[in-house]
C-alpha cells in the first residue's frame, strides 16, 4: 500500500517553476525524510498533498485517493504540522486541541495530548504568549489528534531546542510503531538521519536522490577526511597546499595551523601523506573519519565544485 503517490507533478507559479515533473512514492508504514535546501519545493509538495494548492500538471494521490476530490477524507486520516506554525493568539492551547478533536470527531483527551508534547502546564494560557518552541509542540499535539494514518510534518524542529527535537523524534517513532506513516521535511539532515527509513532529496523542483540512508552512503565514492598534524608549517606552504590539492582523488585541503584537513577518496590517502613529507616536514599524527551524511547532503544539494559529480 502506498500512503503518498505523486507522479509527474509540475507546479508553476507564473513563470516560476516550483516543481518540475516530480515523482515520489511513500510506502505505508515508512518514516520518510523529505530533504532539500530552502526553496527546493518541499512545502509546495506538502501543500499539493493537502490540496492547499493544485498541480499545474500531474497526479497526486494519498491513500490511493485523489488529493483534490477526496481531500476531506484524506485530511480526516492525516495529522498535519504546517511549516512555521501560526496559532490563534486569543485561544488557549487546550482550545486549539479541543478544536482539532471536534473537527476530526475524535475522542482524545486534550490534556493527555498536551502532556505528551510537554506543554501541559501551559494548557490554559493563550497561544499568543507561547514561544516558538511551545507553538510547535502545540501544533504537534493537534496533529496527533485522532491517531492519524499519516503524519505530515513540515520542518517540525523549527524553533525547538536540541532536547525538544529529540522529544519530537521520540514521538515520531512512537507514532510509527503504532502504524502511522510519517512524512517529514527538513533542510537539516541530522534530524532525518536519526529516524528515517527512506530519504528523498529534493532540489530545484525534482527528486535528485531517493534511497535508504545506507543506500545513499553506498552510492557515494568512499570519501575520507584526513586530519594530518605536522611538526611545523612548511616553508613554502602555498606550494605545498597546491601540490596536495593536485593529487588525483583529493577534493579539498584546508590548513588549520599545523593541521591539514584533507577530503579525499580512500585510495589517495597514502599519496597525500607521501606528498606532505616531500615538503620537508614530518607527520606527527593523523586520523581519518568516514564521510558524514551531512557531507553527503551538502554534496547532493550544493553547487560547490567537486561535488557536481555525485549529482546525476
Amino acid at each position: 500500500m502506498t500512503a503518498i503517490d505523486i507522479s509527474g507533478v509540475t507546479k508553476r507559479y507564473g513563470t516560476e517553476l516550483a516543481l518540475d515533473g516530480l515523482d515520489l512514492t511513500v510506502e505505508s508504514g515508512d518514516i520518510y525524510g523529505f530533504l532539500g535546501p530552502n526553496g527546493a519545493g518541499k512545502s509546495t509538495t506538502i501543500n499539493l498533498v493537502l490540496d492547499f494548492i493544485r498541480p499545474t500538471r500531474g497526479d497526486v494521490r494519498v491513500f490511493d485517493l485523489d488529493a483534490r476530490s477526496d481531500s476531506l477524507e484524506i485530511r480526516k486520516r492525516t495529522g498535519i504540522l504546517p511549516e512555521g506554525a501560526t496559532l490563534y493568539d486569543r485561544l488557549t492551547g487546550r482550545q486549539h486541541v479541543e478544536f482539532a478533536i471536534e473537527s476530526k470527531a475524535a475522542d482524545d483527551d486534550p490534556d493527555e495530548l498536551l502532556e505528551r508534547v510537554g506543554i501541559a502546564d501551559a494548557a490554559g494560557k493563550k497561544a499568543g504568549g507561547y514561544s516558538k518552541g511551545m507553538a510547535q509542540r502545540l501544533m504537534l499535539a493537534t496533529a496527533l489528534v485522532g491517531e492519524p494514518d499519516l503524519l505530515i510534518l513540515d520542518e517540525p524542529s523549527t524553533g525547538l531546542d536540541p532536547n525538544g527535537a529529540r522529544e519530537m523524534r521520540e514521538i515520531i517513532r512512537e507514532e510509527n510503531a503504532r502504524g502511522a506513516t510519517i512524512f517529514f521535511s527538513s533542510h537539516v539532515l541530522g534530524q532525518v538521519e536519526a529516524v528515517c527509513d527512506r530519504v528523498g532529496i529534493l532540489r530545484d523542483g525534482h527528486l535528485i536522490a531517493e534511497d535508504t540512508i545506507d543506500g545513499l552512503r553506498d552510492s557515494m565514492p568512499t570519501q575520507t577526511r584526513l586530519r594530518v598534524t605536522l611538526d611545523r608549517i612548511p616553508d613554502d606552504s602555498a606550494a605545498a597546499l597546491a601540490a596536495i590539492e593536485s593529487i588525483d582523488g583529493v577534493s579539498s585541503v584546508e590548513p588549520e595551523g599545523r593541521t591539514l584537513i584533507v577530503a579525499c577518496e580512500d585510495r589517495a590517502k597514502t599519496t597525500v601523506l607521501r606528498r606532505i613529507e616531500e615538503h620537508g616536514v614530518s607527520v606527527e599524527d593523523f586520523e581519518t573519519d568516514d564521510s558524514s551524511l551531512e557531507d553527503l547532503f551538502v554534496a547532493y544539494t550544493s553547487d560547490a565544485a567537486g561535488s557536481a559529480g555525485v549529482i546525476q
Binding site: L50, F52, R75, K76, I80, P82, T86, L87, A100
Partner: peptide, 12 residues
C-alpha cells in the same frame, strides 16, 4: 498569518 493551513489541515 498562515493559521489557515492549520484550519484547512483539519477536515473542513
Amino acid at each position: 498569518s498562515g493559521s489557515l493551513k492549520f484550519l484547512l489541515g483539519l477536515p473542513h
